[in-house]
Structure formats: C-alpha cells, structure tokens
C-alpha cells in the first residue's frame, strides 16, 4: 500500500503537538527551573537567577530532605516486599482453586476503590487510635495488655503504622496483576509437572515464579512509580506540619513550592521544588533500568 506522508503527518501532528505541550515542555521546563533560584512557579523568566547545582547541593545538605528519601526508600523496599509478597501469595491462593474465588478477589481489591483519604482516616481513627481503635480493643479483649497499649501513632511507631496501612490498601491492585499473569500460564505445564511428581509448592517455585518474571518487572516498576508519588498517606498521617517519621520527598517538595504551615512568613522556593521533581524522576528511571537489567523475561517461552 502506498503511504501518503502528508496524511500521516496530518494525523500525527495534533497528538504530537499535545504530547510536546503537555509532557515534553513541562519536563524540560522543570529540569531548567531546577538550576535557577525561583520563588514562584509562575515567576517570569526575567526574575529567575541562575545558581547552577546549588538547589541540588542545598537539598542534599539538608537533614530533613535526606530523611524524606530514607523514608521513601524504606517504603520502596520494605513496603515492596510486603505488598508484592503478600499480593503474590494472595494471587497464588486464589489461583489454587479456592472456593468463592470471585468474592475473595473483590474483597481483597476493595480497598483500591475507596478514596485514599477515607482509607487513611479509617486507619488513623478506627484502627490505630490508642483509646478506641480496633487494635487496642482487639488485643485488650484477648488479654494482651502490652500489645493493646502500643501507641501506634507515637513518633517511634508512626512509620510502621503508615507502612502497614498503605500496603493494605495497595495489595489488591498488585494481586490482580499477578493473577492475570498466572492465568496466562498454560495448565499443560502444571499437568506435566504434576506427572513428574512436583508438589503444589514446588510448582509455585519452579513453574509459576519463573513464568511471572515479566509480571514481576511490571509490578516492580509500577511500585517504584507509586512510591515516588507517595503523598496523600503521608499528608494524612501528619496533616498540618510534616513529621520526621512520615515525611517523603513529595511532602518536602510541596512545602518548598507552597510554603510550610504554622510559620509567620511564607517562604516559597520553586527552584528547589523543581530539583526535587527531577530527583524523583531520576529515581523512577534508575529503578526501571535496574529492574530491566537484573530481571530477564525473554528467556522462557510460554
């Protein structure tokens, strides 16, 4: 078929223009802004003052900002193990032929359709509360006073509380992705392995797991993206001013961009906020490359 280049250009142009305007331009502008001292995100270019990598140096020299990255990495690694591990287990159980599969699938996925604000409020007020929260009442009812008296929202426990509640809300999402991968594995392979004498556990580790590498890559990349944008849960666990235990780079960026609460004079720093955005972007890109380099999914044919 003869290609009509004009037609191709005509069809591609609107989407290309939109892509450049909505994605490419903001990315370039953000990277550019990160090398300038800028107060407001909408300040005119004439008021920008070039300061090289000072925004990056100043951020990395700030203990609170470093703490925010430590928290993010803890969420990524610890939360990743919990979320991806538990969701994989749930998917394997559902795939094993458990009764009422559709019902359990819906129950596990349900937290994902509830707003994060409602979910976090529920956890803070009705699960972790030290007077009437579920954990307090439950452990008290079974006579475990020491566990009932744990103050889940105290400075030493707040991160754990945040992590557990966040993971709870995301497990269903990753479980569905695992499940979709498992559904693609041919029953013939399981049948063959059964004939060879493999138990269910052996099938999981030697058949299911290797054949889910591609899904694992997808889940890990998506987990990195969702961690880099971690904001709402942290904001709800520390609603007015940030906490050392729950602060993440997005919270720090918000405070830089719009000013912190409870201060007499609001100071804003859009240049540093842009630098944080760039660093978060680099985090996702690095994770993407690491995942792609370390996990190969093209050496097994389904």
């Amino acid at each position: 078929m003869k290609r009509n280049k004009t037609m191709i250009a005509a069809f591609a142009l609107p989407a290309s223009i939109l892509f450049v305007a909505i994605f490419v331009y903001p990315v370039i502008r953000t990277v550019f802004m990160s090398f300038f001292s800028i107060q407001e995100i909408t300040d005119s270019f004439s008021s920008w003052v070039f300061n090289g990598i000072d925004n990056y140096k100043s951020l990395m020299g700030n203990a609170l900002y470093r703490t925010s990255w430590i928290n993010l990495l803890k969420i990524f690694f610890l939360g990743g193990v919990i979320t991806l591990g538990v969701s994989l287990l749930m998917a394997a159980i559902l795939k094993s032929g458990v009764k009422l599969k559709g019902f359990w699938q819906a129950v596990i996925y349900m937290p994902n359709i509830i707003s994060a604000v409602a979910m976090a409020t529920m956890w803070i007020q009705y699960v972790f509360n030290s007077t009437y929260g579920f954990l307090h009442n439950f452990f008290k009812a079974i006579g475990l006073e020491s566990l009932a008296n744990i103050q889940w929202l105290s400075p030493d426990m707040k991160f754990t509380a945040l992590l557990v509640s966040y993971c709870f809300g995301t497990i269903g999402h990753y479980m569905l992705i695992w499940l979709s991968g498992m559904e693609r594995i041919s029953p013939d392979i399981y049948e063959a392995s059964s004939i060879d004498g493999a138990s269910k556990v052996q099938q999981f580790f030697y058949v299911t797991m290797p054949l889910l590498r591609g899904i694992f890559k997808t889940n890990l990349t998506m987990w990195a993206i969702s961690c880099s944008g971690f904001f709402i849960w942290s904001k709800l666990f520390s609603p007015i001013t940030a906490d050392t235990s729950t602060i993440v780079p997005m919270i720090y960026m918000y405070e830089k961009l719009f000013g912190a609460a409870n201060t007499d004079s609001v100071t804003r720093d859009a240049g540093s906020a842009a630098a944080i955005g760039v660093m978060l972007c680099i985090f996702v890109v690095v994770m993407f490359f690491v995942v792609n380099k370390t996990i190969k999914d093209d050496d097994i044919e389904m």
Partner: peptide
C-alpha cells in the same frame, strides 16, 4: 510569633515535634 517563634524553621519543626 506563631508558637512564640519556635516553628520559624520548617526544616527543624518535624524533629522538634517528635
């Protein structure tokens, strides 16, 4: 000032609260 001026440095407020 707000909190007598104790919250004047947003970089320190989180450690202070804790």
């Amino acid at each position: 000032a707000v909190s007598g001026g104790l919250e004047n440095n947003p970089n320190i407020t989180p450690a202070l609260k804790e």
